[in-house]
Amino acid sequence: MITGHSLATRLRSLAARVPFDLAVRPGLDASAFPVPVPVPVPVPPTERELLHHLGGFSVPPVEVRLAGHPRQRSNPALPDLRQVVSDDGGGGLTWVDIAPDGTWGQVLMQYREGGLYVQAPSLAAWLDRLITTAEDLVDEVGFEDGVQPYADEFWDALHPDGPQLPLHPAPLLRTADTDPTLAALARHVPDNALLADLRDAAPGSHARFDRACGPHRLRRAADAPVFAAVPWDWQHDRPR
Rank of each mutant, 00 (worst) to 15 (best):
V141Y: 00
L137H: 06
A221K: 07
P45F: 07
S58N: 06
R10C: 05
L167E: 02
H5K: 14
R211Y: 01
W95F: 15
S58D: 06
E153M: 11
F20E: 12
R240G: 07
A176W: 08
R10E: 10
D210H: 03
P231C: 05
R174M: 06
V35G: 07
D237F: 12
D87I: 04
A202H: 07
V230Q: 09
T175S: 10
H5V: 12
T103G: 03
E135H: 01
D139S: 14
P40F: 01
G142S: 08
G91W: 02
T3H: 05
A184L: 04
P19I: 10
P160R: 08
E140P: 01
D145P: 03
V18K: 08
L172M: 13
P38V: 13
W104G: 03
L66T: 06
H5T: 13
P26T: 12
L22R: 01
D237R: 13
L130T: 06
H206V: 15
V64D: 00
T132A: 14
L167T: 10
V141P: 01
D156E: 11
A23E: 14
A23K: 12
F143L: 09
A120E: 13
P40W: 04
E153A: 15
S13P: 00
L116A: 11
R48P: 02
L165G: 05
A151C: 13
A186W: 05
G68W: 04
G56S: 11
T9A: 15
P190I: 08
Q164H: 11
V118S: 08
R220I: 07
A99I: 06
W234E: 14
E140H: 11
D21R: 08
E135Q: 10
A176E: 13
R219A: 15
T3I: 10
H168S: 13
L7N: 02
G114A: 04
R211G: 13
A8G: 10
A183F: 00
L158T: 02
S6G: 12
H236P: 02
V18W: 11
T181K: 00
T103Y: 15
I98S: 00
G214H: 00
